[in-house]
Nucleic acid binder design. Structure first.
Lengths: 146, 146
DNA sequence: CTCCGTGCAAAAGATTTGCACTCCC
DNA sequence: GGGAGTGCAAATCTTTTGCACGGAG
């Protein structure tokens, strides 16, 4: 199933000069299984502990940081606080986020284009980047909560 | 200058059945003076202390909460963490946020309309609300950092 | 006079750091 | 064998809570 993806990630790690340790393998597996659900540091830690109860808070925090720095996962500040997911293959994208289970799907397109001209011509603001998030219910949660 | 605005805010407080205490007056003044800069809890606390060194952390936290609940200020989760500003008169709006000084300006329009049809017709996601923030440099910081 | 709001101190969370030991490469 | 990574414990930082007192209405 996702063994292939895992191998790919481990390979990416090696390329960046990161060591392939048990804690890191578990964390990557967890993110693969999360299937685009956003995980908080605490979520991640809980899942890691189910696999190996000896792994420490600080290891998880440090690895979240390392994986973000090395572009294997991305850090997203949502209404909910800071959360993480595997980095997307897609170039520029924004997310629809389920407020119930934190599953995400990419938006079909970025609506910023429409704004850019207005900001650049009509204001003194110099834009450098932008966030767009749509919150709501994913397919599953929508049915479940009906 | 902004005495009129302050009076208005104090009146709004009274209408909601909130008591008009020194701590609250100071906090509202600070938000008026902040002139649409986003303040963190710590920022707010520091500014409050300059006015009155006896006011406590917990008072500031409790009042931030109270003012949000009573719709006098709004709570914004930005890349930076949780921040606050006076609530805007404008109905539906999003912000351009200066990453250097946290000053904000409202966006000329909301780009969500364009997306809505795509999401509702093309996906199983049920949108309930959305965030759009543009990050960059405001007029002042742009010049200052040139 | 009555409570809401406050100060204070302590608790509860969340995240970071120092240090010695481990084990990946 | 060397150095990145880890576990553990303690430190930091942020936010919340309980309780008794004080002041706004």
């Amino acid at each position: 199933m996702n063994d292939k993806q895992l191998t790919k990630l481990l390979h990416a790690m090696k390329e960046k000069g990161l060591k392939f340790t048990p804690a890191r393998e578990i964390m990557l597996k967890i993110f693969l299984q999360a299937d685009d659900k956003l995980l908080s540091a605490a979520d991640t830690f809980d899942l890691v502990r189910k696999e190996n109860a000896k792994i420490n808070f600080s290891t998880v925090y440090r690895n979240l940081d390392t994986l973000v720095t090395n572009q294997l996962i991305e850090k997203i500040t949502c209404h909910d606080g800071i959360r993480y997911k595997l980095i997307s293959q897609k170039q520029h994208h924004h997310l629809m986020i389920c407020t119930h289970c934190h599953k995400t799907e990419p938006l079909p397109f970025c609506p910023y284009g429409e704004l850019e001209a207005f900001i650049k011509n009509g204001t003194d603001f110099l834009p450098t980047n932008h966030h767009v998030e749509i919150y709501g219910y994913c397919k599953n949660c929508r049915q479940e909560l009906k």
